[in-house]
Amino acid sequence: MMTDERIIKYLENELSPEERNSFEVDLNNSADLREDLNKYLRVKEETGNLKELKLNSLYLDSILPEFRKKLDIPKTVSVKRNLGYAFGIMLIFILSISIFKNFFSTENPAIVLQEFTQSLNENQKIELLEDLNGDAEVYKLLSENISDNELTNLLTTEIEINNEVAEAYDISFNELIVGLSQQKIDEIYTEILNRKF
């Protein structure tokens, strides 16, 4: 057990009779232990002296009248404080509405999309159609907002473009075999046949 712990337990009367005897023997033999004990006794003595400190009687006599005065004063309603509370509640209410507005919105996304497509001019609609890759719902909405003639024109343009692309990739047999030996040509032909191309 540490010295401090032994001293405090000794002062607090928490040592067993054997420990107490042993401590008192050590106390007789050690000046350091006596000095340490005296330091703790000084703390006890100082607090003990201050325990009996008396308050000024005038001050003591003033406590109860002040309390009675407080009891007698009716509770006043502070306008300033109440306005502060009201403002705070209003602020929280407005913030809550703005935050939760999106969660409880009943607006149909399809209606929003329809309004959007109607706001586009013809060129913008065509550009959008080109950008879309099979989004059926959007395509349907867009097509509903474009006249039949415009749609036919659009499809015709698309077919023409596709034909041009196809023609660009139309490579003749002779162009393919340039630079290949007869043996290599036969091998490729056999390979194609084997794959049931």
Binding site: E46, T47, N49, L50, L53, K54, L55, N56, Y59
Partner: peptide, 18 residues
Amino acid sequence: GYENIIEDIEAKERFLRM
């Protein structure tokens, strides 16, 4: 503040130190 509540000057000094 309001130090007159303890009248004994010597005790007051000890009290404030403590």
